[in-house]
Structures are given as C-alpha cells and as structure tokens.
C-alpha cells in the first residue's frame, strides 16, 4: 500500500491542452461546450435530455433512472475520468410548477474538466422525489446525499445510511430548504425550543451503526435499558 503513494498531477491526461486560465467575458448562454457532453450524447442517446451552457459551465440534464449508469461511465471511461465529486445538492424554484432539480458537480482531475449533471423531478404528483445514489462510485457522496435528503427530502435510492444529518433525527417540522417551509419554521419559538430540549439528540447513540449492536443482547441489563430508552447518559 505504501507503494501507491505517488504524486498525482491534475491535467496529466491531456498534456497538450492549453494551460488553464481565469475565465473572462463569459457569455450568458452558449460558448464552449464541455466535450464530455457530446460524448455522453453519443453514448446514452435517450438518457441525455438536453445540454445547456450557462456562463461557460456545461449542464447536462439526464434521465432520472439512468443517472447511476451515466455517472459510472463518466467515472470509469478512460477518456472522461470524472474521478472527483465536488458537490451534490438540489434546487427548488419559487414557481411551484417548475421541477425540483438535483445537481451533481463533477470534476475530472486528469482532464481538468468541470461538468454539472442535473436530474429534474417533475412536480406532477407522480414522480417520486427519488434519485439513484452515487455513493457506490464516490465515497464522498455519503454526507452530501444525506444533507440533501435532510434539507430537501430527496431520497437517494441505494444509499446505505440515509438519515438526517444536520437536523436531529426526531425533527418533525419538515425539510427546511423546501420553499413551502417558512424561514422561521412552522412552530412558535416556544414550541421549537420545547421540542429541541425534549429531543436531546446527544443521548442517542444510533445503536444500529455500531458493531456493539450485534452483541446487544449480551450487554448488561442496565446498559441495554439505557441504550434502548435513549435517555440521558453519563449524568
């Protein structure tokens, strides 16, 4: 394993490419398209819905269910090598008719490329708020997807541990970054405080995550009771 330490230099796969420079005078629409977009079109005809270039950044709208396959290809294909996941997030527009977008920002370090993938989730009442996870491809997606679920309620199918991450697990007000969520929350301040004090997230150990869970039945009675009850520990 120690032999695997060698310096990885971004841009090494495209030595002839021009040196990167600060972008200037970007057009609002149009301009240079990321070559990966054409490659994607050629490879997944129906899976690519449309390609937009806004302020020099290429966004590829892909079909919801084929996302996993597309990202896997982008990650593995030797002419793409999108090995770095910058961000996973979602956008909900103020217009309730407009679909919710889930956004992935990918980087290809060997080719120094930046690509935005988008999946639109229509608000027709039929499309579930679900997209495939990319956790199996990028380990870094773990928390990013959990956060997206926590804030928007979008489920990432296949994610091994999709729980709330920023709000506490018993949080009952909903998904804060949705547009129907009021800025100050749904409840009065006193009620919010009461729920927060009652939740006491610190006393939870999330037993299911621990290897101790397998030995749960062997634990002493008192400890089992305490861990199960979620009551205050250590006091």
């Amino acid at each position: 394993m120690s032999a695997s330490f060698s310096v990885v230099i971004p841009g090494s796969a495209a030595p002839d490419a021009p040196a990167p420079a600060t972008p200037r005078h970007l057009p609002n629409r149009g301009g240079a398209v990321n070559p990966s977009a054409d490659a994607l079109r050629a490879r997944f005809q129906g899976g690519i819905l449309r390609v937009e270039v806004i302020w020099g950044e290429t966004s590829v709208y892909v079909e919801r269910l084929r996302l996993g396959e597309i990202v896997q290809w982008l990650h593995d294909d030797p002419s793409e090598r999108y090995d770095y996941l910058s961000d996973v997030t979602a956008v909900e527009y103020r217009d309730p008719e407009q679909p919710i977008e889930v956004v992935w920002h990918l980087r290809s370090l060997p080719y120094r490329r930046f690509l935005r993938l988008k999946v639109e989730l229509a608000r027709d009442g039929k499309t579930p708020l679900e997209v495939p996870t990319v956790w199996s491809i990028y380990k870094g997606a773990d928390w990013l997807e959990r956060e997206c679920y926590d804030m928007f309620g979008i489920r990432f199918v296949g994610h091994p541990d999709l729980r709330r991450i920023l709000m506490w697990e018993q949080y009952r007000e909903g998904f804060p970054l949705r547009k129907d969520f009021p800025l100050r929350g749904r409840f009065s301040r006193a009620e919010q405080l009461r729920q927060a004090l009652a939740a006491n997230p610190e006393a939870r150990y999330s037993m299911e995550e621990l290897t101790v869970a397998q030995a749960f039945e062997d634990l002493p009675e008192a400890m089992r009771k305490r861990l199960k009850g979620g009551e205050r520990t250590g006091e």
Partner: peptide, 15 residues
C-alpha cells in the same frame, strides 16, 4: 495524500 490538485492552479480565478 499526493494529489497536486489546487483550484488556484487547475481552475484558476483572480489571475
């Protein structure tokens, strides 16, 4: 970890 990725160099801004 040996990856020479620096946004300043690979995706530059501010010259």
């Amino acid at each position: 970890s040996g990856v020479a990725f620096d946004v300043r160099r690979d995706f530059p801004y501010l010259d």
